[in-house]
Structure formats: structure tokens, C-alpha cells
């Protein structure tokens, strides 16, 4: 797979914080690569540096030391700033605060208008983007009458319309109700699968992280562990130690296994959990 984003030994200190020790840095020597077309979830609890890192991917923040390369371009390269932002779109947490215009389609068009796309082309892109997030029927509505999940999908559409290669979502579901969360996560996975857009999902819901191709766990400004969801959530001990959650189904099976039941090492969702239990029970029956 082709590398798309490369994070090389990045340290970041917020303005106003002082000191040389590691606690003064929001990011403490982060190294990672994100491949083209990948769906990566970055998890970690508050203050682990995951949101700070998200804002580095499209050079909203610049590393204090270290470098980040987006498709070969250093994010510190001021002349190619817009090129980077065209490649990497960022969706923020609060859906209300990132919608600029008073009409859905106008807001989706905002990004395209900024990068100087001709009018006719914008119209096509906006319609396609709205269809991709399943909000086409609401194109002439005012955003303040929509639900949180719908607003967040519009924010995503606004980014898609700019045809980025990668979308970074910084806790897009943190302020949504369960239904809105499902809508947004469904949209994201569709975009990754159907349009081949690289997705970096920052979240603290482990149930969402499970859907990714790869999970990166962050803790105090550094990468704690990474791998496929199976690999990561098999390390229940390590995660618990850092006071991070694992999906409920994973935890159940882990605890049962701890009590001496012979169960698979790691399950990720309810479905797998049920299957594992059924398999175990039928095996027990057979053995009498």
C-alpha cells in the first residue's frame, strides 16, 4: 500500500505552556504512517493528544519539532498550504460551529467556492456530495432545523465536495445521540468503501474504532499500541492499565476466559460474541 501521511517524530507544545519535561508537550515524539485508502481509528482518552494530532494533518497546527508529510508535502510548507487542505479535509466535533451559511447547499458549496471551482462544476459536486451523505432532500433547508447527526453529515458533505483524498474526523460523534452517531459512522464507512477516501477517525467510542482497518491507541501524547482491531483489543490488560475501555462484548468474553472458559482470544462486537458463546455451548453439549 502507498503511504499517504507520514508523521515523523513529532513533538508539539501549546503556546503558553512552559517546561522541557514530557508533560509540557501535547505530543511526545509521535511516529506513524497512514496509507492511501485506509480507515484508521485513533483512540485515547481526553488529553491523550489525539485531537491535537488531528489538527496537524491539515496544518492547522504545525509541529514544534519533527515533520509531517501529506502525500510528500511537508505541512510546514506555507506556499502549498491550500494544496494540503484540499487533500486533507477536517471535520470538527461541534456540528453547529462549522456550518457557515444559512442554507444547506450553500454551506456545502462554501469550500468549493473558496478554491475557485467554476459555478457549474460546484453545482454538480454539491449535488453529488449531498447524495453521498444522503442529505440531498434537505438541500434547500436551513441547517438549524436539522438534527445533530444531519448537521454533521452536512459538514462532511462540505468536505467531500472539495474532493479530498483523506478526511480527518475529530470526534464527530461526541455531541450526537445514538441515532445520529449511527448515521455518521455509516456515512463514513460508505465513503471509505465506495469512494476510496482515506479516513482518519478520532474517537473515544471503542465500538466505532472496531469498524476501522487499523486502530491506533494514544496515551499521553504518544502511540501506545497499534494494529488491527483484533490485535489491539486482545490487549485488554494493557488498555485497562491505561484506563481505556474495550468494547463491551470484548470485555465479557475476556472476563469469561479469565474464569477458565475456553473461548476465542478476542471478539469485537455482539455478533461475534454471540457466535462464540453458541459455539462454546454446543461444544459442551457434545462433550456431555
Amino acid at each position: 500500500m502507498e503511504e499517504f501521511i507520514e508523521v515523523k517524530d513529532v513533538y508539539f507544545q501549546y503556546e503558553g505552556t512552559e517546561g522541557e519535561d514530557s508533560s509540557a508537550f501535547a505530543l511526545n515524539g509521535v511516529n506513524m504512517t497512514i496509507n492511501k485508502g485506509e480507515f484508521v481509528a485513533i483512540v485515547g482518552h481526553n488529553g491523550s493528544g489525539k485531537s491535537t494530532l488531528a489538527k496537524h494533518f491539515n496544518s492547522i497546527y504545525l509541529p514544534t519539532t519533527g515533520d509531517i508529510f501529506v502525500d510528500g508535502i511537508n505541512t510546514k510548507d506555507d506556499d502549498r498550504l491550500f494544496e494540503i487542505r484540499k487533500k486533507v479535509g477536517l471535520v470538527l466535533q461541534n456540528p453547529d460551529n462549522q456550518i457557515v451559511a444559512g442554507i444547506v447547499e450553500e454551506d456545502v458549496a462554501f469550500g468549493c467556492e473558496n478554491i475557485g471551482i467554476p459555478s457549474k462544476e460546484i453545482r454538480i459536486r454539491v449535488d453529488n456530495a449531498l447524495k453521498a451523505v444522503d442529505m440531498y432532500d434537505y438541500r434547500t433547508h436551513s441547517p438549524d432545523k436539522l438534527s445533530g447527526g444531519q448537521k454533521q453529515r452536512i459538514a462532511i458533505a462540505g468536505i467531500i465536495a472539495m474532493e479530498p483524498e483523506c478526511i480527518v474526523l475529530d470526534e464527530p460523534t461526541a455531541m450526537l445521540d445514538p441515532q445520529g452517531r449511527d448515521e455518521v459512522i455509516h456515512t463514513i464507512t460508505e465513503l471509505n468503501r465506495n469512494m476510496g477516501i482515506t479516513i482518519i477517525l478520532i474517537t473515544h467510542y471503542m465500538e466505532e474504532a472496531v469498524l476501522a482497518d487499523r486502530v491506533i491507541v494514544m496515551d499521553s501524547g504518544n502511540v501506545l499500541t497499534s494494529g488491527t482491531p483484533k490485535e489491539v483489543f486482545a490487549q485488554v490488560e494493557l488498555l485497562k492499565q491505561r484506563r481505556l475501555d474495550v468494547p463491551q462484548a470484548t470485555e465479557l468474553i475476556y472476563k469469561l476466559a479469565g474464569c477458565g472458559f475456553e473461548l476465542p482470544k478476542c471478539v469485537l462486537n455482539e455478533e461475534e460474541c454471540v457466535q462464540a458463546l453458541i459455539k462454546y455451548c454446543s461444544l459442551q453439549k457434545k462433550n456431555g
Binding site: R85, N94, G158, M162
Partner: peptide, 27 residues
């Protein structure tokens, strides 16, 4: 103020640069 800060960031993410070379969807 917090909203303004967020909005400014969201606008920057979408390549807003103060109206230079801007096109419009609806003419």
C-alpha cells in the same frame, strides 16, 4: 468566542482565504 474560534478553524479547513479568487455556486 469559543464558537467563533471553532468556526474560524472550520473555515480555514475549507481553504477560506478572505475572498481572493473566490467563485460562487449561484450566479
Amino acid at each position: 468566542f469559543r464558537r467563533a474560534n471553532d468556526l474560524a478553524m472550520a473555515m480555514e479547513c475549507r481553504c477560506y482565504n478572505g475572498g481572493k479568487n473566490r467563485t460562487r455556486m449561484k450566479i
